[in-house]
Design a protein around this nucleic acid. Structure first.
Lengths: 245, 245
DNA sequence: ACTATCCAAATAATCGATTATCTGTCAAGG
DNA sequence: CCTTGACAGATAATCGATTATTTGGATAGT
């Protein structure tokens, strides 16, 4: 389901976050499957931030042996979703106001930089991918009453943002942005089940995308920065209100 | 030995890359020790870039069992030094001109940004740490004939750069910069055994550090950017010359 | 010759059991 | 009382053996 985050972040053959996978989206090893399931469990808030992960319980819950469990957890460490300490085990990464603010700031810096590079370097195929991702996202409704629509929307939203910057030709940068998006999505999934009333997010996305394919560098970058910033502000408010910190 | 790269990159208690560790620098678990040894082996070029890592051989070489071996390798994936594919195993990340250029570009962007933030936010203790790191670095000679001096210099150099930006108050950003530095060091260790004749690297470091503690934002950032850029250019030349790509 | 298919050796992944480490509790000594 | 140390249960780390997958080479069919 999740667009197959390539293991390390060295240049890979598979470039754009294509969702057109040839069947075989299936993760092969138990370790990989676990990584996906755990990632989803953490991002969705099912596994509470900051909580300890007891290996024995997890082993029983998922009905697997220790080796693949550790394997899966190890990958989430790369994602920044899990922390680890020798002989003390694993725990779900904490959330905090400071963490959220850093994520927002870094997204503003990195994602905007990556967008600029994409506009500078992206080819026609990139443009097409952007428009497709935009269309699919805008055609998808979020209905707070039906969790599966939220999940679907998140997936497409993530894909839109990654596609926007996928033309930058910088695999490491893409990897970093992908991590930040992951971390950010956790906050959104937990604290925002619907868009704040004063925003038209679809339109924001459209403005960014159209500016991007028109190569209007300053406009598109500015729109993206504002978009990220607004989301950060919303999340901060919700975190302050509902947060049990 | 290596300044204890904290597992995940969430806010940790231990902030500055202090080298004053209280005894107990020792990694506790076999997995951790392996991670260190493998990291050193890769960065030093002992393990050739792009080569496959045969688990059985590695198991015998290091005289350990599979579990901690995989554990150690998993951590190097986070570092970007090892790549992994389901059922195909691990391989040392490849090096390439494009990869080097991306690393250099991202260091210029992120490290400079982090330095600016450090100057904005860093306290007196940060200033002190910077001056100490500078002093220790400049007091250490690089002698191409004695590998242990190179290793020592690399360690202090890395620490200097990390200390410079350690005041930025952004753990994730620090983590990213640390990764980039790691990746960059591999190129330097493999391709540069001594400083290029037309540079006075000690002086470059001094200028950056002094600008930093004087809070001369534009000057320090400019010096750092040039410093990174020059290193990138040198490495590119050596890679083109000696590289066996 | 060329491709496709099947085998066997090589390699990776997983399991269950064992060993090492930690954590909290309780008793002895100050 | 408070501290210290030792014990036991809980938890993490490691091992050796087993199972699953891949890979390269041989074979058969076109």
């Amino acid at each position: 389901m999740v667009p197959h985050d390539d293991g390390a972040f060295a240049p890979t053959t598979e470039d754009a976050p294509s969702s057109s996978g040839f069947l075989d989206d299936g993760k092969n090893t138990i370790g990989s499957q676990l990584a996906s399931r755990l990632r989803e469990a953490i991002i969705s808030g099912e596994l509470q931030a900051g909580s300890k992960i007891n290996l024995d319980k997890a082993r029983k819950t998922f009905n697997v042996s220790l080796s693949p469990l550790r394997e899966g957890l190890a990958r989430l460490i790369s994602d920044g979703l899990v922390e680890f300490e020798d002989n003390r085990g694993y725990r779900v990464s904490s959330i905090s106001l400071a963490n959220l603010e850093e994520i927002t700031t870094l997204r503003e810096e990195f994602e905007v930089f990556a967008l600029r590079e994409s506009m500078r370097l992206g080819d026609v195929e990139w443009e097409g991918n952007v428009m497709r991702a935009l269309h699919r996202l805008n055609r998808t409704e979020r209905d707070a009453a039906r969790p599966e629509t939220l999940e679907r929307w998140e997936e497409l939203h993530r894909e839109f943002h990654l596609t926007l910057i996928s033309g930058c030709g910088k695999p490491i940068l893409l990897h970093f942005c992908s991590l930040l998006l992951n971390l950010n999505d956790r906050y959104r999934r937990v604290f925002l089940t619907r868009t704040s009333g004063d925003r038209n997010v679809s339109q924001e996305h459209s403005e960014i995308a159209q500016g991007a394919v028109a190569r209007d560098l300053d406009y598109a970058c500015d729109m993206l920065r504002q978009h990220i910033h607004r989301t950060g502000t919303n999340l901060r408010n919700h975190l302050a209100t509902k947060g049990t910190l």
